[in-house]
Design a protein around this nucleic acid. Structure first.
Lengths: 266, 266
DNA sequence: CGGAGCTGTGAAAATCCTGTTAACGCAGGG
DNA sequence: CCCTGCGTTAACAGGATTTTCACAGCTCCG
């Protein structure tokens, strides 16, 4: 169910050889990686919204242990993996009892380090209710993962599951153009068959529902020959007051069509 | 901070030397330990209500890997620590990616093994915390964990164990949409088989009993394609008086059906 | 200016999902 | 051994949702 989701990892180590190799692999795997050489204040770690922290306390000198203890104490939800040189059983046991989740001995293969980081993150995620983030807001839109719905000033858009997943994917990549194949792969979970128009159809449904609730904004933009891009933009024209007009749909649609095709973005 | 709470651990290994030493220490630490020599069916592991499982898949011969995979897949909440002899990086990576939480190489000091079991168990505990003391009330409903029952103005709903667990889970996540897989995982304790309808059937039983005792409220809402959400809502329509109608059941059911399908969150 | 290739639309057709029932198997108590 | 309560499965019907199609409208590019 959960594809190898992107992991946010921080590495506190000065062993440049190990770190650079690891960074390379992590990047290849699509992880978000931050490096630091010294003891980063726990507050900053919080701000990074990490899944896990890989640390060599030996590089921190005397305060290594106390730092480890402080971090584990202040961020009980953070996965902590110690990766250091030769150590005694007593040291390892102490580290683990202090709150570390795993202890790897250097030299170690970067792939194993990554697998252990994954294992720790996996367990982390499971425990905490996956309400990882607060609602994502964009323009007048509020996307709530815990409700599988999007709202505009409290009103639900009545999205179906696929519509929601598509919207979330696009919104999470705000500003980035996503190709149809990528979108399909990530929302449907498998490769898109050649000639499949499902993505287009769902984009249309989404635009329809978005316009209904948030007419003065334009969210999903088409990139001809490529795919789609999510970017909330207030539509220039202010809403025309048509308080009692029986059917303003024609004018609204004509207007919106012009807005959608803003190809030359970027 | 964490009192070394009692841990329920199962060990699947035939290395009597290692196991007996470990058992001795575990007992001294007040752990509940179960031993097994071969592949125990995942169902039995569920029944043991374990915190963690320590296993040497090499002792299971050929099926070691598949057994590991099966257990990790079916009991995603169980901490799994592999403890085996010499291994390659590739093997360790594979094991960890399969779902194992840690991998220890024999020979290893029993104290370290225990520290790692603790570290893995610590994680799992973090998510499902807290002694919620008082009874939980919602609408006309009162859910008492100490009684394993729910009441409406003093009358018991006569819920069975599973019905109660399901209701409690939903109610504790009030307002949040829970997916079927999540529900099954948390109430039944292991992964839901594809196509299993147990959750639906139990939701129906619950709704039935809830309506019987609290007709003017709607508690469990369906989110098509996703799962269910608990949210007490007073039903708009006041009870229709049908003083002399011999069997009002039909109208009541028809009405309630309409209410259940309030897909639009809000 | 015109054709080829893409994308927007609407609606029909094919699937999937949930509500409901009822049969089945199991285990505990008489 | 039979009865009863409980949980699991299978099957069906009615809807809701997704796919698939056929066309019309746009873009790009020569």
């Amino acid at each position: 169910m959960n594809a190898p989701q992107s992991i946010r990892l921080a590495v506190i180590d000065t062993d440049s050889g190990f770190v650079t190799v690891l960074a390379k692999r992590a990047e290849a795997a699509g992880w978000q990686l931050r490096q630091a050489a010294g003891a980063v204040p726990p507050e900053e770690l919080v701000a990074m919204k990490l899944n896990a922290l890989l640390i060599d306390p030996a590089r921190l000198g005397e305060e290594g242990w106390s730092y480890l203890e402080r971090v584990c104490g202040m961020l009980p939800d953070l996965g902590v993996i110690v990766c250091t040189g030769r150590s005694t059983v007593a040291q390892r046991v102490r580290g683990l009892r202090l709150g570390a989740d795993d202890w790897i001995t250097k030299p170690c293969h970067p792939e194993e380090a990554m697998a252990r980081v994954e294992a720790v993150s996996r367990r982390r995620r499971r425990g905490r209710n996956e309400v990882d983030a607060g609602p994502l807001v964009a323009g007048e839109l509020e996307i709530r993962s815990d409700q599988f719905q999007a709202f505009v000033s409290g009103d639900s858009l009545d999205l179906t599951r696929r519509e929601f997943e598509l919207l979330r994917l696009l919104a999470e990549a705000r500003g980035q153009v996503l190709e149809r194949e990528t979108i399909y792969q990530r929302v449907w979970g498998y490769a898109m068959a050649h000639g499949d128009r499902s993505v287009d159809v769902f984009v249309r449904k989404l635009r329809q529902k978005l316009e209904k609730r948030s007419p003065s904004w334009s969210y999903i933009h088409t990139h001809f020959g490529v795919g789609y891009r999510f970017d909330p933009e207030a539509v220039g024209e202010v809403v025309i007051e048509v308080p009692d007009a029986p059917d303003p749909s024609m004018s609204v649609e004509a207007e919106s069509r012009a807005v959608h095709n803003s190809f030359t973005a970027s």
